[in-house]
């Protein structure tokens, strides 16, 4: 009985030691490799399990019910989403272009996104953290810090990749911070996740004229997200006399609960002539 109790105490001490060790060493190559391997194993298991079901479902939906329509619709949906994303960016470029023209510093600029489609196959197991696992990884051109968007706006960025999967940190996660730009007043700030599905827009001075409904886009600073991608809309603005900055809450442009298809933005091809 005494030995049993001492075994338990020993187990608790070792466990606490392991937990402290994990917390203190933080993310590193070996552990990231372990998690990548776990996700890969899960990906293949999920594929293996869903393959027979998909096969049966596909016979009905692709060959019996509708021969080509489903695939065509899927392609069109992807194409539409790609165009919408390109459009958001192009609009920003047009604004920038007219400003530059007005300043008589005209430069011919050509921007092109390379978009990589992916589908969500797992969501975060906790309620607090907001991450997704998508079915595309390193072998499909995805990389760490790759911006992830859908047709409505920014979803997040890739935080870790394995050969066939990527983990995406959503902009609503409390660990996420994205340099942002309020279009109406042309002011830069930082958009940070709150953990409850909304976003905080920080470092906007109290004196700025921000109103509910104002569109907030990525500013392009830090180089992770290209400029002009939609982040969200101003939801509430609170101004306290004792504070330097206004307390601004945004509603994300993307409904994070219902994400199915996303796009990774490849390296931007900028040609300045």
């Amino acid at each position: 009985m005494g030995s049993n109790k001492s075994d338990k105490i020993l187990f608790i001490i070792i466990s606490v030691f392991i937990v402290i060790l994990l917390i203190s060493i933080g993310p590193n190559r070996v552990l990231n490799g372990t998690f990548s391997l776990t996700r890969e194993a899960y990906y293949w298991m999920e594929r293996g399990l869903s393959a027979p079901m998909n096969f049966v479902a596909n016979i009905w939906s692709d060959y019996i019910y509708l021969v080509n329509t489903r695939q065509e619709n899927e392609n069109l949906r992807h194409e539409l989403a790609k165009l919408k994303i390109q459009c958001q960016h192009t609009r920003e470029i047009q604004d920038e272009n007219s400003r530059l023209r007005a300043m008589l510093e005209f430069k011919k600029t050509s921007y092109a996104f390379k978009l990589y489609p992916a589908s969500v196959f797992a969501q975060d197991i906790s309620m607090i953290f907001k991450t997704l696992v998508i079915n595309r990884g390193r072998s499909d051109g995805f990389f760490k810090d790759m911006p992830i968007v859908n047709m409505y706006g920014v979803v997040g960025r890739v935080i870790s990749v394995s050969p066939h999967t990527s983990e995406v940190l959503l902009i609503t996660d409390p660990n996420s911070a994205v340099p942002a730009f309020i279009k109406t007043i042309k002011t830069n700030g930082i958009v940070r996740g709150r953990g409850d599905g909304l976003l905080n827009l920080e470092y906007i001075r109290r004196s700025e004229n921000v109103n509910a409904g104002d569109e907030v886009v990525t500013s392009g600073l830090l180089g992770i997200f290209p400029r002009g991608l939609r982040l969200g809309y101003v939801y509430t603005v609170k101004k306290d006399r004792r504070e330097i900055f206004a307390q601004i809450i945004l509603k994300p442009a993307v409904s994070m609960q219902r994400i199915e298809d996303v796009f990774g933005i490849g390296k931007t091809n900028n040609k300045h002539n």
């Binding site: 060790l21 994990l22 197991i125």
Partner: peptide
């Protein structure tokens, strides 16, 4: 591997 929670 399926969460954005900090390590440990």
């Amino acid at each position: 591997a399926f969460s954005g929670a900090s390590l440990g």
